[in-house]
Design a protein around this nucleic acid. Structure first.
Lengths: 159, 159
DNA sequence: CTGCTCGGTTGCATAATGCAACTAGATTTT
DNA sequence: AAAATCTAGTTGCATTATGCAACCGAGCAG
C-alpha cells in the first residue's frame, strides 16, 4: 500500500509508476492494446476481482489513459478504449515483454513473440540509442536540463 | 496484495511484472542504474520503510536482478549491484521515463531529460519498429510462434 | 414478462505496507 | 580502548489495499 504518491515527484519515472505502476494497470493496458474493450472480457482475461477492476478502470479513465465509449456493437453497454496517451504505453509494454522473453523463461520453455502482422517477421529489439543510432548503456547517460548550448551538467546520473 | 503470482504465466509481460511490477522494485532499479549501491542510500533516496527495502532487495537478489557484492570502498559492508539481467531493464526504465515526460507533466512544468554523457545530446525516443526500421503501432502487431516459414498465425493479437 | 447476462457495488477476511522502536556489528571519535 | 555513532537490518503493531463471495439493477433475448 502506498500512502505516499509520486504524482508530484520531479522524476518522470516515478510519475509514470504512480499512474500505471500497480499490479494490474499495465496488464489492463496490455489487454486493451490487444483489442479487449469490455469489462467482462478484461475480467475473464485477467482473473482479477471485479471490484478491483472497477477501481483500476476508473483510475485509468481519470488519468486519461482510457476512456469510456458508448458502444461498438450497437448495444447500450459502454466499452473501454485506450486514448492516445494510453497507446503511448506500447513502448513500455514491448520493453517489458522483450525483457521477460529474454530473462524470465527457462531454457527450452517456449513463448510467443511479437510479430509484424503484415510480414510475420519479429519486431525489432528496443534499444536505448543516441540520436544517431549508437547503442547506449546506463553508464553513458546522465540527467540534465536541455538548456541553450551548455556543457552536460548534472551530477552523477539520477535518471 | 497479490495472492496469485504470474511467474508461471505464458505471457512474458506478466512474468516481467511479477518480477518488478510492484511499487518499489523499478524505482530501486532506477536508482541502481544511476549508481546507488548502499542500503542506506536507497532508503534515503526512495523514502521507503527499511523493512520493505529489505524485502525488495532480497527479492531482487533472488531473481538474479541484483547481487550483493563484498565492498567497494574497503569497508566490511555489503553493497547491492545490478547483474546483467538487471541492467537489461534500462530499456523499460527509459520507456517509462519517456512516457512520463510526455504525458505526466503539465505545460510549463519542467523536468530533466536523459542525455548522452559524452555529447550532452538527448537520447533518441524509443519506438517499436520492424526490423527494417519502420515504426509500428499496436494494430500492426500480432503474437505468434516464430516457427519455420509459415504464415502469420495467432488469432487476435494477445501480446 | 421471465430469465439470463453485463457491469457493477457492498461487506468481510486477509495479506501487504508503513511506522516506530530496537539491535548487532562496523566505524569513528575521544 | 571506551564511548558514541553509523549501517543494515529485525520485530511488533496499526493501517490500507486486495481478494472473495454475495447481491443488485439495467439490458437483452425468448
Amino acid at each position: 500500500m502506498r500512502r505516499i504518491s509520486f504524482d508530484k515527484s520531479a522524476c518522470p519515472i516515478a510519475r509514470s509508476l504512480d499512474a500505471v505502476g500497480d499490479w494490474w494497470s499495465l496488464l489492463i493496458v496490455r489487454d486493451a492494446l490487444a483489442g479487449v474493450r469490455r469489462f467482462g472480457d478484461f475480467q475473464k482475461s485477467l482473473g482479477l476481482a471485479k471490484n478491483i477492476l472497477t477501481q483500476r478502470l476508473r483510475r485509468l479513465v481519470e488519468l486519461g489513459i482510457m476512456e469510456t465509449v458508448p458502444a461498438s456493437d450497437g448495444s447500450a453497454y459502454r466499452e473501454y478504449a485506450l486514448t492516445p496517451k494510453g497507446e503511448g504505453l506500447l513502448t513500455v509494454i514491448v520493453a517489458l515483454r522483450q525483457w521477460g522473453e529474454e530473462t524470465c523463461f527457462a531454457r527450452g520453455e517456449s513463448h510467443k513473440s511479437l510479430l509484424e502482422a503484415k510480414t510475420g517477421r519479429p519486431v525489432a529489439r528496443l534499444q536505448v540509442t543516441s540520436q544517431d543510432g549508437r547503442p547506449l548503456r546506463a553508464a553513458d547517460l546522465l540527467l540534465g536540463r536541455l538548456s541553450c548550448d551548455q556543457q552536460p551538467q548534472g551530477e552523477a546520473s539520477d535518471f
